[in-house]
């Protein structure tokens, strides 16, 4: 207990367990449904050497990154404005909540009609999914700004901008990070959804291709690649959060 190696070792143990379960499932399931880990590994090698995996990964990451980046910028801007100008926030928040509660996939046919089947439509689908949690969390974070600290800042002669930059925004940072984490998850889901529903492309496109043609080893490679993206993005955001909230200790 307490050794810095305990958690990594336990994680390796769980990974080993999962691999064992997978190997067992590959033998137990009817033929051709669950590929063995070895077959999947070989398929990964083939896909990588042919350049298909790299190309699909690049396409998906471009859509995901663009959609998520736009959502972060626009979401923080809108949420902060709504929080900073109370009447604006009050006027808009009902509609934002309504939009956030509507399944965003429902908009896909409309988006396709408006933007076509290309990259623009895909990026917009990712954006639309990811922007809501960013707006809502930025809004709540700014609203939660401590009025006592704002009064203190005013007493030092600080103006609106200085108060915003040094008091309101740092106070809202934990909320912003939660919003971005939710956005990253939803954004990845929507990337795949967009690639399935518009012109098939990227990892989502390969998922459909291999799934529909029963090439399950290749299909598993894509599945695992998506999981890996999720892990990497979550980990990056976790490190960013740790850095931003180092003043809270632990």
């Amino acid at each position: 207990m307490g050794s810095p190696l305990t958690v990594p070792l336990m994680r390796l143990g769980v990974l080993g367990g999962l691999l064992a379960f997978w190997a067992w499932a590959a033998r137990a399931a009817p033929r051709g449904i669950v590929p063995t880990p070895a077959a999947t590994w070989e398929a990964a090698g083939r896909l990588w050497e042919s350049g298909r995996l790299a190309q699909a990964l690049g396409e998906s990451l471009a859509v995901y990154g663009a959609g998520l980046g736009l959502a972060a910028v626009a979401g923080i801007a809108v949420g902060v404005l709504m929080g900073a100008f109370r009447p604006l926030g009050r006027a808009l928040d009902v509609f934002v909540y309504a939009l956030a509660a509507t399944p965003r996939v429902a908009f896909i046919p409309l988006i396709v009609l408006l933007l076509g089947l290309g990259v623009e439509a895909k990026v917009f689908i990712v954006f639309l999914g990811a922007v809501m949690p960013v707006i809502l969390n930025a809004y709540v974070g700014v609203q939660n700004a401590d009025p006592e600290l704002i009064e203190m800042a005013r007493s030092t002669g600080a103006g609106r901008w200085r108060i915003f930059a040094h008091v309101v925004l740092p106070g809202a940072t934990p909320f912003l990070v939660v919003g971005l984490r939710l956005a990253a998850t939803i954004g990845l889901i929507n990337t795949v959804v967009a690639e399935l529903y518009t012109a098939a492309q990227g990892l989502g496109g390969l998922l459909a291709l291999y799934g529909n043609s029963f090439r399950m080893a290749e299909y598993f490679v894509i599945l695992l690649t998506l999981a890996l993206i999720g892990v990497v993005v979550t980990e990056i955001l976790r490190l960013a959060e740790k850095h931003l909230s180092r003043w809270r200790g632990e």
Partner: peptide, 20 residues
Amino acid sequence: PVPGRRSAMVFQSFRLLAWK
């Protein structure tokens, strides 16, 4: 009086910026 111009204030609740 203009805030911060010639005066400074100390509050009961300290009012420190936790992130600084």
